[in-house]
Deep mutational scan, measured.
Amino acid sequence: MSDQEAKPSTEDLGDKKEGEYIKLKVIGQDSSEIHFKVKMTTHLKKLKESYCQRQGVPMNSLRFLFEGQRIADNHTPKELGMEEEDVIEVYQEQTGGHSTV
């Protein structure tokens, strides 16, 4: 019986991991920090939209990076291997420009 009891508790931990929340720091170019608590399985588009709304800027005017890689709207913290207190960097999107060649 103890084996049966242990097995469901392991499964519960697996389920808990799926719905687990982590805190992420979003740091802007001006070094301002906003902290977000997100589920591991939530699409990061929600975090990006919330950040842009707080900053009063359109979402397409900023780019969000985690460990140097651009974050897509459909990425989740779990897919990117994010952990508690990880940092997302935000930069002004640069458009235009010309070749110097």
Rank of each mutant, 00 (worst) to 15 (best):
residue 2 S to E: 14
residue 3 D to F: 05
residue 4 Q to P: 10
residue 4 Q to E: 06
residue 5 E to V: 14
residue 6 A to E: 08
residue 8 P to R: 12
residue 10 T to V: 14
residue 12 D to M: 00
residue 12 D to T: 03
residue 13 L to H: 06
residue 14 G to P: 01
residue 14 G to M: 08
residue 14 G to A: 08
residue 14 G to D: 12
residue 16 K to C: 08
residue 17 K to F: 08
residue 18 E to M: 12
residue 19 G to F: 15
residue 19 G to S: 11
residue 19 G to N: 12
residue 19 G to H: 10
residue 19 G to I: 11
residue 20 E to M: 12
residue 20 E to C: 06
residue 20 E to A: 10
residue 20 E to R: 14
residue 21 Y to P: 11
residue 21 Y to E: 06
residue 22 I to W: 01
residue 22 I to Q: 04
residue 23 K to Y: 04
residue 24 L to Q: 04
residue 24 L to F: 04
residue 24 L to C: 09
residue 24 L to A: 04
residue 24 L to R: 02
residue 25 K to E: 04
residue 25 K to T: 09
residue 25 K to M: 03
residue 26 V to F: 05
residue 26 V to K: 04
residue 26 V to M: 02
residue 27 I to M: 06
residue 27 I to Q: 05
residue 28 G to Y: 00
residue 30 D to I: 02
residue 30 D to G: 13
residue 30 D to R: 09
residue 33 E to A: 06
residue 34 I to N: 03
residue 34 I to E: 02
residue 34 I to S: 05
residue 36 F to G: 03
residue 36 F to A: 04
residue 37 K to C: 01
residue 37 K to N: 05
residue 38 V to A: 07
residue 40 M to E: 12
residue 40 M to Q: 03
residue 41 T to G: 08
residue 42 T to P: 04
residue 43 H to E: 13
residue 43 H to R: 15
residue 45 K to W: 06
residue 45 K to F: 05
residue 46 K to A: 11
residue 46 K to F: 08
residue 47 L to P: 03
residue 47 L to H: 03
residue 48 K to M: 06
residue 48 K to D: 01
residue 48 K to T: 00
residue 49 E to G: 06
residue 50 S to R: 15
residue 51 Y to I: 06
residue 51 Y to R: 05
residue 51 Y to N: 05
residue 52 C to F: 02
residue 52 C to Q: 04
residue 53 Q to T: 15
residue 54 R to A: 02
residue 54 R to H: 02
residue 54 R to S: 05
residue 55 Q to A: 10
residue 55 Q to N: 09
residue 56 G to C: 06
residue 56 G to Y: 04
residue 56 G to P: 00
residue 56 G to E: 07
residue 57 V to C: 05
residue 57 V to D: 03
residue 58 P to Q: 07
residue 58 P to M: 00
residue 59 M to P: 11
residue 61 S to A: 09
residue 62 L to N: 06
residue 63 R to C: 07
residue 63 R to P: 00
residue 63 R to I: 09
residue 63 R to V: 07
residue 64 F to V: 02
residue 64 F to C: 04
residue 64 F to D: 02
residue 65 L to Q: 01
residue 66 F to W: 10
residue 66 F to I: 04
residue 66 F to Y: 13
residue 66 F to T: 03
residue 67 E to N: 13
residue 67 E to D: 08
residue 67 E to V: 06
residue 68 G to W: 04
residue 68 G to A: 01
residue 68 G to L: 05
residue 69 Q to D: 12
residue 69 Q to L: 08
residue 69 Q to T: 14
residue 70 R to L: 12
residue 71 I to P: 03
residue 71 I to Y: 01
residue 72 A to V: 10
residue 73 D to G: 02
residue 73 D to I: 01
residue 74 N to M: 08
residue 74 N to H: 08
residue 75 H to F: 05
residue 76 T to E: 00
residue 76 T to D: 01
residue 76 T to M: 00
residue 78 K to M: 13
residue 78 K to H: 08
residue 78 K to N: 14
residue 78 K to Q: 08
residue 78 K to Y: 15
residue 79 E to L: 11
residue 80 L to D: 04
residue 80 L to G: 01
residue 80 L to T: 00
residue 80 L to M: 08
residue 80 L to W: 03
residue 81 G to Q: 12
residue 83 E to H: 06
residue 83 E to I: 13
residue 83 E to L: 14
residue 83 E to V: 12
residue 83 E to R: 12
residue 84 E to F: 12
residue 85 E to H: 08
residue 85 E to V: 09
residue 85 E to Y: 14
residue 85 E to K: 15
residue 85 E to S: 11
residue 85 E to R: 14
residue 87 V to S: 11
residue 87 V to G: 07
residue 87 V to K: 11
residue 88 I to D: 02
residue 88 I to L: 07
residue 89 E to R: 07
residue 89 E to A: 07
residue 90 V to F: 05
residue 90 V to S: 08
residue 90 V to M: 06
residue 91 Y to V: 14
residue 92 Q to G: 11
residue 92 Q to T: 12
residue 93 E to C: 09
residue 93 E to Q: 11
residue 93 E to A: 08
residue 94 Q to T: 08
residue 95 T to I: 13
residue 95 T to W: 14
residue 95 T to D: 00
residue 96 G to H: 08
residue 97 G to N: 00
residue 97 G to I: 00
residue 97 G to W: 00
